[in-house]
Design a protein around this nucleic acid. Structure first.
Length: 208
DNA sequence: TGCCTGATTGCCT
DNA sequence: GGCAATCAGGCAA
């Protein structure tokens, strides 16, 4: 079941936690890839200087101020992109950064796109997973409940050809979520807005 | 294992 | 003009 628009209308931290275990599905011309979300970060409109929207709407962050349930993909460090899920009502700039996936399907395609083969290295970082999933800036602003890029509820994805990874049937439970400070930011570096599945080997780095 | 650095470019001050 | 929600590789311990 594809997560409906209503899923994204809850508050941003709730969405960041609820996305853990869900499946990100991208149908590209090269084929389908699927990854299970295992690490997220929340970026809040108010009281969070690290949030792109903190200083108001600009050309770059405009999508964050649009309706929830859409992709916010931005260019960073001259060579990478990061994928976010827009949350909060229209006019409020909040989003959830997806930081790591557990590869589920289309793994050979992911490996080709990344130029590496180790499973735990395919999607273990925000820049890595965008490459592995074949997402581009063209998807910036696209809805996540219809179209080529969708997010499916944990436990609900009908695995292709009956193939399921061992972890695919193991969605998040409250006790299995760990939180801590976000990664790679200087401002508001102490806020505990990073969430990941406890002991999951596919996170970008283990929580401190 | 872990720290440090270079690569590379669009956007904002 | 400087920075940025990153990554891979090099080098030291």
């Amino acid at each position: 079941m594809i997560l409906p628009l209503s899923f994204y209308k809850k508050d941003t931290v709730t969405v960041a936690r609820a996305l853990l275990g869900a499946f990100l599905v991208h149908d590209s011309p090269q084929g389908r890839t699927i990854g299970r979300i295992v690490e997220t970060e929340a970026y809040l409109y108010r009281g969070d200087p690290a949030c792109h929207a903190h200083r108001g709407k600009t050309k770059r962050n405009a999508v964050m101020f649009g309706p929830p349930g859409h992709a916010y993909i931005y260019f960073i460090y001259g060579m990478y992109h990061c994928f976010n899920v827009v949350t909060g009502p229209e006019g409020v700039g909040e989003a959830v950064l997806v930081r790591a996936l557990e590869p589920v399907a289309g793994i050979p395609l992911m490996a080709r796109r990344r130029g590496v083969t180790a499973l735990h290295n395919l999607c273990s970082g925000p820049g890595k997973l965008v490459l592995a999933m074949g997402m581009t800036k063209e998807l910036n602003g696209c809805p996540l409940f219809r179209g080529p890029l969708t997010i499916w509820k944990a436990h609900s994805f009908p695995a292709p050809r009956g193939q399921v990874t061992a972890e695919a049937g193991c969605p998040w439970r409250p006790g299995r979520i760990e939180s801590g400070p976000r990664i790679g930011i200087r401002k508001a570096a102490d806020l505990p807005l990073r969430f990941c599945l406890k002991d999951n080997p596919f996170v970008s780095r283990p929580p401190r």
